[in-house]
């Protein structure tokens, strides 16, 4: 099984990328509200994601007020989608193992109740 993407796997960064993958672009405040991260945390994660080329940060002034616009890149979109697929595959594997163990346990208790003396 392929290793999980450690950069994307961090919950805060995964939340950021997942939100950005569903929009054309968003500003810092929307992302903060949508992910529930603090300003400091969000800034830190965005820097890492930008350095890795998964997010593009565009800072400009609109009517003398700073505006930060965030866009996910194609690489970011692809890695995010792949990561969710891996998590889903892991979840299905875990469910299959759990179902198999439950079934084995049920068979063992049925067998032991049959051999018990009256």
């Amino acid at each position: 099984m392929a290793e999980l993407d450690r950069l994307v796997h961090e919950p805060g960064r995964l939340a950021i990328l997942t939100v950005l993958s569903s929009v054309a672009d968003a500003d810092f405040l929307f992302l903060q509200r949508a992910t529930g991260l603090t300003k400091g945390n969000l800034s830190s994660h965005l820097s890492k994601l930008e350095d890795a080329g998964l997010v593009r940060i565009d800072k400009r002034f609109v009517r003398k007020k700073p505006q930060t616009t965030l866009t996910i890149t194609d690489a970011g979109r692809e890695r995010t989608a792949r990561h969710w697929e891996q998590l889903e595959a892991l979840r299905e594997q875990a469910q299959a193992v759990s179902a198999s163990q439950a079934s084995q346990s049920a068979r063992r208790s049925a067998a032991s109740s049959r051999v018990r003396p009256a």
């Binding site: 929009v23 054309a24 672009d25 968003a26 500003d27 929307f30 903060q32």
Partner: peptide, 12 residues
């Protein structure tokens, strides 16, 4: 001002 700005995706 309080909730930020977002541009909807092409699908949206």
């Amino acid at each position: 001002r309080h909730y930020g700005r977002v541009s909807p995706s092409g699908g949206e």
